[in-house]
Design a binder for these strands. Structure first.
Length: 207
DNA sequence: CTATGATCATCC
DNA sequence: GGATGATCATAG
């Protein structure tokens, strides 16, 4: 597996803007549909394959950790809007309970990320151009204070009421919500709410 | 089974 | 029509 710095990755991705990710996925044998089922992560996996990196964050030679994220965009009244919230990382109750925000997995991932936006045309994903590429460093912004509060709310809730008391209605920028295999699993993950995703993508002004 | 890549489906 | 809960494919 090849190491690549965030800078190099950003350069590469920006050169891909305007390209159809569906074609890239086909060229690289990424499953999009299989037996009538949809692989929801296809576009993200395609980008990772194009960069030649593993299936999540990688460590570059200089010890620089970063995270790649991709969100679908839909055009509304002539402007691009984020279609979905963005899943960031799983919530491991024991881990969250013992770690302060600064040492959390959530904070780690948000410290250095590359966030991309792609065109989401229709259910068939007949074509999907890469639209935006931006980098985001949580600690260089003012968002970390609120996000730390969101994290601590989750922490407190698990502590006082238990893991099952978490609901997606909690959190201002980051919400705890179910994510997993489904069919009875009740695992959860941290998700970035839509307005926040639009801000870090760079398609919305900071409030 | 857990975590990765996320988006689908349903409820209000 | 947006927010919350449920789910898909794949790797290790």
């Amino acid at each position: 597996m090849k190491n690549i710095t965030r800078f190099e990755a950003t350069q590469l991705l920006q050169r891909l803007i305007g390209q159809d990710l569906r074609k890239l996925a086909d060229e690289r044998n990424i499953t999009v549909f299989k037996n009538g089922k949809f692989n929801k992560g296809w576009a993200g996996l395609t980008l990772e394959k194009v960069l030649g990196i593993g299936n999540n964050c990688i460590q570059a030679s200089n010890g620089d950790f970063w995270e790649l994220k991709l969100v679908p965009l839909v055009k509304k009244n002539g402007i691009w809007k984020v279609k979905e919230t963005m899943a960031i990382t799983m919530i491991n109750p024991d881990d969250v309970l013992e770690k302060p925000f600064e040492k959390s997995h959530l904070c780690d991932k948000m410290k250095k990320m590359i966030i991309c936006g792609r065109e989401r045309l229709n259910d068939k994903e007949s074509s999907s151009k890469l639209l935006y590429v931006n980098s985001f460093d949580l600690l260089t912004t003012n968002f970390w204070k609120q996000i730390k509060e969101d994290y601590e709310l989750v922490q407190q809730t698990i502590k006082m009421e238990g893991f099952d008391a978490l609901t997606g209605s909690m959190g201002r920028y980051i919400q705890p919500r179910t994510k997993g295999l489904g069919h009875g699993s009740n695992t959860r993950a941290f998700y970035a709410r839509v307005p926040f995703v639009e801000t870090i993508l760079g398609i919305r002004e900071v409030e």
